[in-house]
Nucleic acid binder design. Sequence first.
DNA 1: AATGAATGAGGATTCATTCAT
DNA 2: GATGAATGAATCCTCATTCAT
Lengths: 195, 195, 195, 195
Amino acid sequence: MPKVGMEPIRRDALVNATIAEIGRAGSLDVTVAQIAKRAGMSSALAHHYFGNKDQIFLAAMRHVLTVYGHDVRAALKKAESPRERLEALVEASFCVHQFDDEIIAAWLNFYVLAQTSEPARRLLAVYQKRLLSNLVHDLRPLVGDTAPMIALRIAALIDGVYLRQALRDRAMDNHSATRMVLDAAETWIGRKTDA
Amino acid sequence: MPKVGMEPIRRDALVNATIAEIGRAGSLDVTVAQIAKRAGMSSALAHHYFGNKDQIFLAAMRHVLTVYGHDVRAALKKAESPRERLEALVEASFCVHQFDDEIIAAWLNFYVLAQTSEPARRLLAVYQKRLLSNLVHDLRPLVGDTAPMIALRIAALIDGVYLRQALRDRAMDNHSATRMVLDAAETWIGRKTDA
Amino acid sequence: MPKVGMEPIRRDALVNATIAEIGRAGSLDVTVAQIAKRAGMSSALAHHYFGNKDQIFLAAMRHVLTVYGHDVRAALKKAESPRERLEALVEASFCVHQFDDEIIAAWLNFYVLAQTSEPARRLLAVYQKRLLSNLVHDLRPLVGDTAPMIALRIAALIDGVYLRQALRDRAMDNHSATRMVLDAAETWIGRKTDA
Amino acid sequence: MPKVGMEPIRRDALVNATIAEIGRAGSLDVTVAQIAKRAGMSSALAHHYFGNKDQIFLAAMRHVLTVYGHDVRAALKKAESPRERLEALVEASFCVHQFDDEIIAAWLNFYVLAQTSEPARRLLAVYQKRLLSNLVHDLRPLVGDTAPMIALRIAALIDGVYLRQALRDRAMDNHSATRMVLDAAETWIGRKTDA
DNA sequence: AATGAATGAGGATTCATTCAT
DNA sequence: GATGAATGAATCCTCATTCAT
């Protein structure tokens, strides 16, 4: 067995384990030992690769945001009109990679982490800014100057749906979530021209 | 100094200190000692009055929800039409007692707490259910059978605004927040009768 | 209600509560608060009357030994021959006041207390010495110079029966216990002359 | 210093330190920190290896019982007749490993522990049952059907001697203790054949 | 006489992190 | 590269004890 090139494998395993453990615990009260165990290694090794617990959390966050970014890009690739792109953005936000109990719990906790950790806050801010600018970009042809305002509403609505989902009380599937946001947006945009 | 009847005073002090500390820390990683110190007593006394840390957190949560409930009732009292009541509900959600950095941080963390603690989950669920049923009640005269759906959108929107506020990035004041939600709702409701 | 003359009542209540709590807990890990609560008063009052926890334990110990002393004297009063007195001593050791789960647990724990507390050790030593001298006194007419040796055996046997009883495993009632010790002693003493 | 395979060494050290500390304190009021310190390590490491204090106590108890078991087996190996085996059993009970202040204090406290802890109770019960069945087995050729009764007497006598020893008052050495129990038993058995 | 109020001192337990191998 | 070993620094919680009333 080659001992070289293990680094990316180990790091991936830790990142995934981190998300899984946060999901399981429903909070950031997760020990490095738990994460490492799930990732199949010693906690010492986790430290070796990441330096400290904060870095592990940040890497996990980066991973979630990266996957989300991929989902968005993939969805946008298939879209051909502004309205399709808009739908793609919302769909991506609720796509199966994202709208999963584990990931939702992770998102919620990343918001909490962002209260304490400046790097975490920055990561989340970047994601929000990107979503907003995407939304504005695709809304402008449809609604003109009210695009920023409506984009903000849509973004907030998406976040709100996530937050409520985190309570698992009146759970929705990803399709209903997408529909709900798109239907709400529909009224703001005005009757469809194409879509 | 009276040496009797301290219990309610101490409990209040602890509850307030808890919210303040959660706000300061931006997380539930707050020690009983910190809370007790801010409340001006020993941690032993905090345990004496609340039994354990969870109970302290729950009491703090109950307090926040109670204050919110008061705000809602006060706002509703002045409202005279369904539409006014609707506006009152949204306004109360963003009223100055609620839309304060400290309280917002507390809310966010209570959502996290609800992931772990069944009593906490129940408390939040009650609050959500009450908000929803209030919204539905006042929307029905305005929009008929779509009331539940629109109520859900409004509730999600409110939560979303809170969540984004928690990042303190593009901070809104409570008026803008209220306006944003009401404007968004306006489109769904339509200018049926009046205000 | 007269407030005077409460002291002996309170002290008795505390002593009884102490024994009961030690019995319940099966150990000396009993808090002053628990004892005071069972005795129907505040722990502060318990301290007022006894000074500190050690004194409470010692008083409880003294009480148990005193009751035992009474039982012995009462039993001896009815006895008319050395052999009857001997039987009376053994019977008293297993009489219903003594051979009760609560009291047995207390005895066992007093032996433990005696390891740490010199006054406790002295109390137990006094009890042992008195039992021994009683036994010797009544054995001498029956067995002559071997009395001290046989007394020691009987005393040890009694203690051993107590110790095994503490495990509640192969529980005996007080009659069987008495019989067992007396039968054992019988052999050492030789065939009965009177009794 | 080897940095691997420390576990058994550490566990042994902790077990011995536990017995020593219980002996020193004369009670179970011994902190993990004290035990760990005597064993030459941090209390965190003690927890790492044993999980919690109860497990440490149980391990210490198991150790004492195991050593006793070894002593018994070793003594029995040299015995050739029932009577010799009987003497061996009693001797082993008072052998130098057992009849040591530290170990006696430990035994006494394990009896107390057994009041609270079910596993502890089971351990003691096993030891008692084994001793009894050994005694019965070797008494039967000597006394026939009264073997169980006499076994019980002997067992109780042994325990009683231990209990009295715990007070350190009229301390015996292990030879006198053995003699005392064997002499007492002699009368019950009768000088049937010889040894 | 009686108690609620209050705390300092501790004790079990956890955990991130470091280190030697 | 990998890990078991090890610990200091917390943190929750308990409790005997004191004090003001």
